[in-house]
Simulated scan of single mutants.
Amino acid sequence: MSNDKKLDFLQALRGLAIMMVVLSHARWFFLVTPYQQTAETLLHGGAAGVDIFFVISGFIMAYTTKGNDGSPASLMRFYIRRFTKIWIPYAVIGIVTFAVAKGTGIFVHENLIWIAKSLIFIPPDAHSFLYLGGGLTDVAWSLNYEAYFYLIFGLSMLFARFRYVALFGWCGICLIAVPLWDHGHASLLVTARVNSDNAYLQLMTNPIIFEFLGGVIIGKIYCSSFVIRDALTARLVAFSGCVGFLWCILENIASDNGLLGWGGWAVAMVLAISLASKSTHIPFPAVLAWIGNISYALYLVHPLVNMVAKELFLHYGLMPLIPTIGHVILTTSISILVAAFAHSILDERLHVKIRDGLLASRLFRAPRISISIQSTS
């Protein structure tokens, strides 16, 4: 079985995660209606899709860089591949979304500052817990965490075989030492804050970063020689991980992001499925894997589709049709179609062209050196 085939489960998990997020945001259609509480109960747990994405990101970082040589040249290639992939679609779709939301007000000084910060993944609002103001779209808050993790993961690669010591050491300082110094205790709650008006410091010290680290650990286990030798046992492990996560969502065992919320269950599910996939083929619906392939575009475009659809319905006097299942189906379907188009243009064409151009440029070639750490033992 090829490596691509063996990792099909990741695309399916991405498809699951994005559909959860899209449906979670659909609950806003039912605000101030008799169905608000029902929609909240049924759809709120879909926000756990973000936790799945974070765990998968950590896994992918560990898996795709397992042969990295720790050189500045490889670091530059890593940054080009990762940042062009997330920045190009975000810049295009994000600016369009922000312009639609703000109208002519987009040219106000405060909004221009907001755009500038958002485009370099600096959270624009230090006083908004976890989300930190988001960015060009309401969902952009997660991209700030992704970009930060790419940044520190890349830098840790310069430490060659000690890179995970550097990565976990840095995260230990930010997530444990700084909170201990600031207010006397560390926390796993994503609502935790340090006493600072610096938005980036709030991001660096937010415990949701632990989810990326959980994904890294899973990736390392997956790349190891450990394997569940019995196929039936492997299937039972995968089934248990999925059932546990589903139970957590449906029974409201958890109600927020982070390891103490949905994140812990997401880590367990990804671990179970990844381990099982080494021993047996895990079938997933092909459509789920396809949606997983366009998941990033869908993540970015669905708020725009929801916003435009709402404005059109209000303009044509169709407001009573907004808080309906039909509207959820309509906006979700349109979002998927728009995402497929955006993915084709922005990811498969524009992103690939810019990425390959940068990778081929002399400007981003560096001499092959790395930070060497001598063992004293």
Rank of each mutant, 00 (worst) to 15 (best):
D4F: 10
A62F: 08
H127R: 09
V139W: 04
H127V: 09
A297E: 07
I52K: 04
S361F: 11
M61K: 08
D230R: 09
I291P: 02
C223W: 08
L201Y: 11
F30M: 12
K310V: 12
F149L: 02
I228W: 07
F121D: 00
L42V: 10
S344C: 05
F107C: 03
V92C: 02
L350V: 15
N198G: 00
A199S: 14
F239L: 15
Y35R: 07
V328W: 05
M1V: 15
F153N: 01
F162D: 04
T376R: 14
E211M: 02
L43M: 10
F9V: 07
H109Y: 14
G103V: 06
T97M: 00
A140L: 04
I95C: 02
G214C: 08
P123I: 06
A160F: 15
A186Y: 11
T191A: 09
A91V: 10
H127N: 14
W247G: 11
R82C: 10
D182V: 08
S187N: 01
S375M: 09
I113C: 05
T280C: 10
Y145F: 13
F212V: 06
R235P: 01
E211S: 02
R355T: 15
L188D: 00
T205I: 06
I345K: 04
G45M: 00
I60K: 05
D256Y: 13
A231W: 07
G215Q: 06
G45S: 05
F239Y: 09
L10M: 08
L75E: 11
Q11W: 08
A192K: 03
S375C: 09
V237R: 05
L167Y: 05
A192H: 13
T65M: 12
I176G: 00
I218D: 06
Y145S: 01
W28F: 15
D347G: 03
V267H: 04
A231P: 15
F239G: 11
L330E: 05
L43N: 06
I152N: 04
V108F: 07
A192E: 10
T38E: 09
G215V: 03
Y296C: 00
I209Q: 14
S377G: 12
L143N: 03
A140D: 12
A116D: 07
L180Q: 07
I113F: 13
T137N: 05
L143M: 11
H25D: 07
A340E: 11
R235A: 09
F313C: 15
A39E: 05
R163K: 13
N3Q: 14
P179S: 03
F107D: 07
I106V: 12
T205F: 11
